[in-house]
């Protein structure tokens, strides 16, 4: 068994870390929206996919420089997020009385409406673009897929980009949440929506802002990961979405640092599991951790006693 701890094992840790970062990029936006609405946004994976397609269209028709590309994708994500909020979440906030706001049924309806939007968007994308993987213009794909050799280890340039993006997104989000006015209202609504409303926070505006921020980040994650994996297709949001969901639950549902740590932990343990079992079993690892967390830490590993968001 100990002969396994060689250079390939280190390579496996590097692989796992980069997979974990992919989950983390998706989990950040996911957790932010959950923190505020206390409801799972099932369409987050589709926002990620829309980001990838918007970026791809921009690459094909405009061939913009990298900064412009990211801004275009960010804008597309924000627009998609706001539209999603309008279509799937706003209609269920019509009733302002306390009973409705606390009602589980109301929350669960948005769960289903976001699922509905996600299916409609995914199938519509399949109808328009086809269900198959889209080829990416070579110059852009190569930029994120070049192997970089460090001794016997190999990392792809895209892995470094994703590491950078994860750090930037995480810090930007912390800045927005703790240093800006809108961040303050987001935290207020997350802590107590009724209370926030009574002290004059515009709940509607705050929810829309949360969707804009979370979806913008989801869309940027989509194009970066799509380019790095070289796989842009309508169902691309599903697998990372599920893992991000697991990371969010393990992290305690509303702790962004918790979700990021759990996402990286998941990625590394999946890669290490591949050393000992067939890849088919690696998925089981994620769900095993989910079940163990729910049994032994019902509030998540980082959930209890922390401020929400």
């Amino acid at each position: 068994m100990f002969d396994r701890f060689d250079i390939f094992f280190v390579q496996q840790l590097v692989n796992g870390f980069s997979v974990g970062l992919v989950y983390a990029l998706v989990a950040i936006g996911f957790t932010l929206i959950f923190g505020v609405l206390n409801v799972v946004n099932f369409a987050h994976g589709e926002i990620y996919m829309i980001g990838a397609y918007a970026g791809l269209m921009a690459l094909i028709f405009l061939a913009p420089p990298w900064v412009a590309l990211l801004l275009i994708v960010l804008a597309a994500g924000i627009v998609a997020g706001v539209l999603l909020e309008r279509a799937a979440f706003k209609p269920f906030r019509r009733f302002r009385d306390e009973a409705s706001l606390k009602s589980k049924a109301m929350r669960e309806s948005t769960l289903l409406s976001s699922l509905a939007v996600s299916i409609i968007v995914r199938e519509a994308t399949e109808k328009i673009f086809g269900a198959d993987m889209r080829p990416i213009p070579r110059a852009y794909a190569n930029a994120l897929q070049e192997p970089i050799l460090i001794g016997e280890l190999a990392v792809a340039s895209g892995q470094l980009v994703i590491l950078g993006a994860a750090i930037v997104m995480f810090l930007t989000l912390q800045f927005i949440l703790f240093r800006t006015q809108i961040g303050l209202s987001i935290r207020a609504v997350a802590a107590n929506p009724l209370g926030a409303q009574y002290v004059g926070v515009n709940v509607d505006r705050t929810v829309i802002a949360t969707f804009a921020i979370g979806s913008g980040m989801g869309a940027v994650a989509g194009i970066l990961i799509g380019l790095y994996q070289g796989t842009i297709f309508p169902a691309m949001g599903f697998a990372p979405g599920v893992k991000a969901f697991v990371a969010m639950v393990m992290g305690g549902l509303n702790s962004i640092p918790g979700a990021v740590i759990c996402a990286i932990f998941l990625g590394v343990s999946e890669a290490v599991a591949t050393e000992f079992f067939a890849q088919g079993w690696a998925d089981l690892v994620a769900y095993l951790f989910l079940v163990l967390t729910l049994i032994f830490f019902p509030t998540g590993l980082f959930g209890a006693g922390r401020e929400r968001v």
Binding site: Q12, N15, G16, E270, A271, A278, Q279, G280, D283
Partner: peptide, 20 residues
């Protein structure tokens, strides 16, 4: 011999394992 689940497009772990 490595079998992967349908839908998986992340092969780095599998590749590293067989490269050994």
């Amino acid at each position: 011999t490595q079998m992967y689940n349908p839908g998986n497009r992340e092969f780095r772990a599998v590749l590293t394992d067989i490269a050994r």
